[in-house]
């Protein structure tokens, strides 16, 4: 087994590396195409702003490499978001592996009518704007339930943007509107939460990925 963690200058590489070390796995941190291609498993982490992260990916030519990988690839948080389509935060196109938009979760709380993940909905939050805002602060920060592989698991989230439900949805969380907490398509996997910071549930998920 050779695990490559893509090091493109954005994010929490150390945390991911340490989490895998706790599982008894050594990883290499790299941005080298040959190294990445020769790995059995690739992890694509990311924390920060979509625009600067995408620029760093492009600077290193990784925007061309990642979509063509054939081994299991796991995007975490911003990594997952960058594997999607149109990204509202960075006002840019992601890598397009998952055909889904990344949109702000803030707009749910503005006055009616409310646009929820591309659809207009009226009525449901009428008069509740302030209460909703108090109960659902943004960023969505903390532990929340995810329905994944027919089970409920609790993971740690920190994000202000989310992917809507789509055909690649693998795990669903609600805040309060359902969104894609995890995505899956062919050899590509993405999680909005942080498995490296999600206690034993997170460790299980990482082990599951490494067993692919």
């Amino acid at each position: 087994m050779k695990i490559a963690v893509i090091d493109y200058g954005a994010g929490n590489l150390f945390s991911v590396q340490q989490a895998l070390k706790r599982l008894g796995k050594e990883v290499i941190l790299t941005r080298d195409e040959a190294e990445i291609r020769s790995a059995t498993h690739v992890i694509f982490p990311g924390v920060g702003h979509a625009k600067s992260a995408m620029k760093q990916l492009k600077d290193h030519g990784l925007d061309k490499v990642i979509p063509t990988l054939a081994q299991p690839v796991l995007g975490i948080c911003l990594g997952m978001q960058l594997m999607c389509g149109w990204n509202e935060e960075g006002k840019l196109d992601g890598l397009g592996i998952f055909q889904v938009r990344i949109e702000s979760i803030q707009f749910q709380f503005t006055n009616l009518p409310i646009r929820q993940f591309g659809k207009w909905q009226t009525g449901s939050f009428e008069g509740k704007s302030r209460e909703m805002r108090s109960n659902y602060p943004v960023p969505h920060m903390g532990w929340n339930d995810v329905q994944i592989d027919g089970k409920a698991e609790t993971f740690y989230f920190v994000h202000s943007y989310a992917a809507e439900i789509c055909e690649d949805t693998w795990g669903i969380a609600s805040y309060p509107v359902p969104f894609s907490a995890a995505l899956k398509k062919d050899n590509f996997y993405g999680v909005q939460f942080h498995p490296e910071k999600s206690g034993s549930a997170g460790e299980q998920l990482l082990n599951q990925f490494l067993a692919l």
């Binding site: 924390v47 920060g48 702003h49 600067s52 911003l78 960023p139 920060m141 920190v158 994000h159 202000s160």
Partner: peptide, 8 residues
């Protein structure tokens, strides 16, 4: 916030 994102 611009460098690391508001969430952190």
């Amino acid at each position: 916030a611009n460098v690391f994102g508001s969430q952190c």
